[in-house]
Design a protein around this nucleic acid. Structure first.
Lengths: 168, 168
DNA sequence: TTATATTTTCAATAAGTTTTGAAAATTCAG
DNA sequence: CTGAATTTTCAAAACTTATTGAAAATATAA
């Protein structure tokens, strides 16, 4: 396998993984392309390498920037914009975790909190069972939340290493 | 808010969360419905409560069973099948983690391993950079994998509690 | 300022995914 | 067995999401 093939394979797989996890396949592919690019790429280069339209490329690049996974690079004397990706996989993971937590988990936790103030006889086994189930999920989510926060704040990669020693 | 509303709210939110994470919205809703049901439900009850067709209900129930999140319950003297969900949220999370790891992460790790045997001058900075990026991702994934395995094997809920003390 | 390169937007369309519903298969009580 | 109840399957339809491409907006060099 040569470099070009290997890159393509990587981009392809990253795209599949992304789409299985609810991330636009093209967005994941653009991300992958930039992850393995040895220099920043222009919109045109991205369009060409992935065979996608300008609109599509533009949209997904901007989305990746809003996730802070990709940065704009200005080359003096060149009118085009170039883009490059954060390559430290720890930082990448923490960014993704942070965004997903903020955009998706937090709203769910909010709903769970609302839900357990409900009227009716607190002794009613139906109500008791429901409240308990929801409250358990809420607590669990709260703990996961706290754990994520700590991991996200632990900017340094070394943390990951020593943390993982706990798991043999 | 009364119990019925609260349940509906919960089912709705669980469905949204699922779809954002690449899980069929209806599957997540059936799961939610069974999570907060005080007794096992039949296919007809699920169809009615979620306003979905028999085919749809059947398909998603079976999918949930393949994830081992839902179990069939046989009521003697009743020809209908009933279904109930695992309610221990720790177990639920571990099941989901396990399935997703197996179905989605493992194939990616396999691709990553294939990819870093590539021909060409190992000194070439292009090749070196690519190999390094991929290798870092592979290592990271390997560690996450190991961590998940440990968590999954730690059947008991107490583990979560002591584990979380690490995060203040 | 002006002309041109570049980026952004968005309505139309394409592609992908989910749902339906009715027919086929299966199950089981009598 | 038989036949009614139940579950399963799957092609077609409905719905959702992603992509295109050309026009509008913006930026910049001269």
């Amino acid at each position: 396998m040569d470099l070009k093939e290997a890159k393509q394979q990587f981009i392809q797989s990253w795209g599949v993984l992304g789409s299985q996890w609810g991330i636009n396949r093209t967005m994941a592919q653009v991300h992958a392309l930039l992850l393995v690019a040895s220099q920043p790429l222009s919109t045109d280069e991205i369009m060409e390498q992935l065979s996608i339209s300008r609109g599509n490329a533009n949209m997904n690049i901007r989305e990746l920037m809003s996730w802070e996974l990709v940065q704009k690079v200005i080359v003096p004397g060149d009118r085009k914009e170039y883009f490059c990706a954060e390559k430290d996989i720890w930082k990448v993971s923490m960014r993704i975790m942070y965004e997903r937590k903020k955009r998706e988990l937090d709203p769910m936790v909010k709903v769970l909190s609302t839900i357990n103030h409900l009227e009716g006889d607190k002794k009613d086994p139906e109500i008791k069972a429901f409240t308990e189930t929801v409250e358990n999920i809420r607590k669990f989510a709260g703990q996961a939340d706290k754990m994520m926060d700590t991991m996200i704040k632990a900017e340094e990669n070394w943390f990951w290493g020593s943390f993982l020693k706990l798991f043999k």
